[in-house]
Amino acid sequence: MNLLKKFYYGDLPEQKASANDPSLTGEGREGAAAWPLWEIFIRSKQGLDHKHVGSLHATDAQMAMENARDVYTRRQEGVSIWVVESRHVHASNPDDAESFYDPANDKVYRHPTFYDLPDELKHM
């Protein structure tokens, strides 16, 4: 069961994985494994919001920005980039899912569908 454990961004045990997992210590990976991980957010031409597109390794914010440009915008995907070091992302624990999300299941009244709208109100 433990084998199926899924890691989410922010809780990936990077140091442990790189030290023990031979698949991550192949030729040339030693350098990159020692570099911090960054999360990359791109805003497309049409979009108003930055969307998470993936992650990469870089020594500092400037290199992360340039790597993001080279890895994630080579097919005109974006016009703006945000980079955030992964260690600054705090993710919810999947084990908390029941107490976090299930209670909302039977509370349909939280959706604004129970109000009678006056006829004068258009475009709702």
């Binding site: 040339g28 990976r29 350098g31 990469l56 870089a58 790597n67």
Partner: peptide, 10 residues
């Protein structure tokens, strides 16, 4: 053959 994936692409 780049030293790291990101620079290989760059």
């Amino acid at each position: 053959h780049g030293p790291v994936l990101e620079q290989d692409i760059a």
